[in-house]
């Protein structure tokens, strides 16, 4: 008798819990609705276009598979064409930018996180002000700095390090400089957020137990900051994949990224092919995202440091 009452009670409790959970879900509704209408639908319509504009089928993907200039890697001839090569260049630039922002951003975030809050907030302004300035203006500023008569060349020549102005502008290097500058805050901010959340007592404990500073950093701080590293890298990498203005203005002849080809096709009203290229970009981004999630877990990437 008692067990039956217990079971009834448990069932009722479960039902109540499910109901509350569903109510929580209701709170999500406005955001979900907004995303479906203003994000989901346009993306879906755009992707559909890659299969049905101008006609149903895979015609828009043909230029991607046509092998026009095969390249040889380790004696194996691989089918290659401009579109695949541009995708390769895009990935290369995105990876390079991500690594550079990480190497530059990590020490900055570490320094900021180790400071008293008031000073860190003050110094944070230097990270945030460029962040609020238009990409185009910052790119133009780099053009002025890196030009033949630019400040960088003038300083180098003034110091007699070089006698001829160096070619800095319109190179892959200039693309990296511009993109790293623009994307650095996207690396520093998540790193800083995670590092702030790390309990400093853990490091003190490690020191107490006889660890040297480097050991403390390597075996305690670094692993705890990894979620920040993952979040920053993911953000920077995916943003870098879609860059347009900076590589277009600072880059040389061969620094073409996929967004430039998409724009080229949109202007020429070949929207189907442009959508196909966008689909490829989206699939690459999704694969990278899934790899990150698989290796680190969403919880760890976006869940903060106390774990």
């Amino acid at each position: 008798m008692a067990t039956a009452a217990r079971a009834e009670q448990a069932r009722r409790f479960e039902r109540l819990e499910r109901l509350t959970q569903r109510r929580y879900l209701l709170l999500l509704a406005p955001a979900v609705l907004f995303l479906v209408i203003f994000y989901g639908y346009p993306v879906a319509a755009m992707l559909l276009r890659s299969f049905n504009d101008p006609a149903w089928g895979f015609g828009n993907f043909k230029p991607l598979t046509a092998a026009r200039t095969p390249i040889e890697i380790l004696g194996v001839s691989l089918p290659m064409n401009a579109y695949l090569r541009v995708i390769g260049i895009t990935l290369q630039i995105a990876v390079g930018t991500t690594i550079a922002t990480l190497l530059l951003g990590y020490p900055v975030a570490y320094a900021l996180a180790s400071m008293p809050m008031s000073r860190a907030n003050l110094l944070m302004i230097f990270v945030l002000v460029p962040f609020w300035t238009s990409i185009l203006v910052r790119t133009y500023a780099w053009m002025a700095l890196l030009g033949t008569d630019g400040i960088v060349n003038e300083v180098l020549m003034g110091l007699r390090l070089i006698d001829q102005p160096a070619t800095l502008l319109n190179t892959r290097g200039a693309v990296y400089v511009g993109m790293v500058h623009i994307l650095l805050p996207f690396m520093i901010l998540p790193l800083y957020a995670v590092m702030r959340g790390i309990d400093r007592n853990l490091m003190r404990a490690a020191e107490n137990l006889g660890a040297r500073p480097w050991q403390v950093f390597r075996s305690v701080f670094l692993p705890l900051s990894l979620p920040g590293v993952a979040a920053g890298c993911l953000l920077v990498f995916i943003l870098a994949l879609g860059f347009y203005i900076t590589p277009s203005l600072l880059g040389g002849q061969r620094d073409i990224m996929i967004s430039m080809l998409i724009q080229q096709q949109v202007v020429q009203l070949k929207w189907g092919f442009a959508s196909a290229l966008a689909l490829v970009l989206l699939v690459i981004s999704l694969i990278i995202y899934l790899v990150f999630v698989r290796v680190l877990g969403v919880q760890r990437i976006f869940g903060g440091g106390r774990r």
Binding site: W132, T133, L136, Y244, Q263, V267
Partner: peptide, 28 residues
């Protein structure tokens, strides 16, 4: 020229940068 160009680029990029650019031109 930068102003003209920024407007063209903004339109090409579907207005994603619109806010940033107009803020920047205000700053300028």
């Amino acid at each position: 020229d930068l102003d003209v160009m920024s407007r063209r680029e903004v339109l090409r990029r579907g207005g994603r940068l619109a806010a940033g650019v107009s803020a920047a031109s205000l700053l300028l």
